[in-house]
Structures are given as structure tokens and as C-alpha cells.
């Protein structure tokens, strides 16, 4: 079985340790993982702006590149949802390669819980964490039941995985799944509202006594961390892959510190 690692472009460029942690997590489960070197982006920024003509060739490229693999794993609910739920308009419904890619693309957490069936991790993260369920993972991929439909039941895959890490304790914001206000280009198109949303979200996590916000999408965290650092607030952000690998708390903010072999300086 061949597993391909699909690394979102902004993670590749700005948060390499998130991808390293993802790779290591998968390798620890005994999987042989390859990183197709020619990958760039899934096309979501163009699609969400309305530039379908610009998104299409990027989507086609993606399918071409990944169709040879049995499974494709991505440390982002948003990018995985793009492939699974929004690629159809760029392909014929009987395009076999497209169908294969769509059906074999997984977000990291759902891959670990549903496909691999992870039972233990052997890692430790002795901190009080609060979960930010990123919207696309939540409501497009249903990684957990949303607060709007929670009474209907369902698994919470992020929490199931975090519960396997020794030492994790929980902080619960009052609004369990309020959007952080990133929203891709929304963050700059509607900067004022986006910033207001982010600040409210941070205040809720801080009031809950969280040390670190954990999410399955680094894009939400990039936005939140930008606000946290500007305001000098005592709150970390980490991608769930980093927590599952037991990276030190500072790892999210200073990717250089955590990873041996990754030359980062400042």
C-alpha cells in the first residue's frame, strides 16, 4: 500500500514541522509514506475567490500527481475537503483518476482514527489544551459533530486522538466551535470582521485557562497566532500532529526549536 503525503502550500513554506510531525506520526504506525516532490497547492484559494478558471488547472495537476497512490493524507481539513467536496466541478463524473483521488484523500485525523485505527501513540504532552475545531474539518468532513447538530451524536476524532497522548488536560472555551475568522481570503477581504472574530476566539480560549490552542488546520492557527503575538498574549498554538508527536509547547511558535535537522534561525 502506498501512502502519499499531501502538504498544503502554506505548511510547506511556513510550518515545515507540522508536515514533519505528520510524516513521523504516519511512519510510527508502520506506514511507508512518500512525499511527491512536484506538489504545490490544491487550488482552494482560487476556487474560494471565484476564479474557477484559475483553480481548474491546479486541481487537474493535483489529480494527475496523486492518482498513482492508494491513499493520500493531508494535515488540513480544509484542503482535504476541497478535494473531496469541491473538485467535482472540474472533472467529468466518470473520470476514473479523479474518482480514485477523491475517494482516497483523507484528513490526517480521520485517517488515523478511521483507516489506521490508532490505539496508542506513546507520546506525552503535559499541558492544558483547548481544541479549535476548524470549520471545514468540522462541517465539511464531520470530524466531530458540530454544536448545531451535536445532540444527534457522533464521534469527535480530534479529541479521541488527543486523549491517547499522556498528560493532556482539557480547557473548554464557552463557544465550542465558533469560527476563528480566518476563512482564506476572507482574512484580508473582510479584515476588520476577521480580526474581531479572531480576538473573540482567543479571549474565549484564554478565559478557559488554555495553554495552547490545538487545531487540525494550521491556517486558522496562523491567523490566531498572528493576533496572539501582536497582542503579546500568553497562549500557544499547535497543529494536532505536533501535539500527537509530543513536541514541546514552544514548537508551534518557533518551528526551529523542535525539529532536529531542520535549519531555522532568526
Amino acid at each position: 500500500m502506498s501512502v502519499a503525503l499531501f502538504v498544503p502550500c502554506y505548511i510547506d513554506q511556513f510550518y515545515p514541522d507540522v508536515a514533519v510531525a505528520t510524516l513521523e506520526l504516519l511512519e510510527r504506525q508502520g506506514l511507508e509514506v512518500v512525499f511527491p516532490k512536484e506538489q504545490t497547492c490544491c487550488g482552494q484559494p482560487m476556487a474560494n475567490t471565484g476564479c474557477a478558471a484559475q483553480a481548474e488547472p491546479v486541481a487537474r495537476r493535483f489529480v494527475e500527481l496523486f492518482s498513482e497512490f492508494d491513499q493520500i493524507v493531508c494535515p488540513s481539513g480544509s484542503c482535504a475537503a476541497m478535494v473531496r467536496h469541491h473538485y467535482a466541478e472540474y472533472f467529468s463524473p466518470d473520470d476514473q483518476r479523479f474518482r480514485k483521488v477523491r475517494e482516497s484523500t483523507f484528513e490526517l485525523c480521520e485517517f488515523l482514527t478511521d483507516v489506521v485505527g490508532v490505539q496508542s501513540l506513546g507520546t506525552r504532552f503535559p499541558h492544558r489544551v483547548s481544541v479549535h475545531p476548524s470549520c471545514h474539518g468540522l462541517r465539511e468532513l464531520r470530524l466531530a459533530p458540530s454544536s448545531e447538530t451535536r445532540f444527534a451524536g457522533g464521534r469527535d476524532k480530534l479529541r479521541e486522538l488527543l486523549a491517547l497522548v499522556e498528560g493532556v488536560t482539557w480547557a473548554e472555551p464557552q463557544r465550542s466551535d465558533e469560527c476563528c475568522g480566518f476563512g482564506g481570503t476572507f482574512a484580508v477581504n473582510e479584515a476588520d470582521v476577521s480580526v474581531a472574530m479572531g480576538r473573540d476566539r482567543i479571549a474565549d480560549h484564554l478565559a478557559a485557562g488554555s495553554e495552547v490552542i490545538v487545531a487540525g488546520d494550521m491556517s486558522c492557527l496562523m491567523h490566531l497566532n498572528g493576533l496572539i503575538r501582536r497582542a503579546g498574549q500568553p497562549l500557544g498554538v499547535m497543529h494536532i500532529a505536533q501535539v500527537l508527536m509530543g513536541r514541546p509547547l514552544s514548537g508551534a511558535i518557533r518551528p526551529s526549536v523542535a525539529v532536529p535537522g531542520l535549519a531555522v534561525g532568526e
Partner: peptide, 17 residues
């Protein structure tokens, strides 16, 4: 205007890989 940019690492993930 209201947010810090991410700290740029020297190597991207593909370089690390």
C-alpha cells in the same frame, strides 16, 4: 495591520524532506 506574519523558516518542508 493587526496580525503578525508567520516566522519564516530557512527551509521549507520539501527542502527538509
Amino acid at each position: 495591520r493587526d496580525r503578525e506574519l508567520p516566522t519564516a523558516p530557512a527551509d521549507s518542508f520539501s527542502q527538509w524532506y
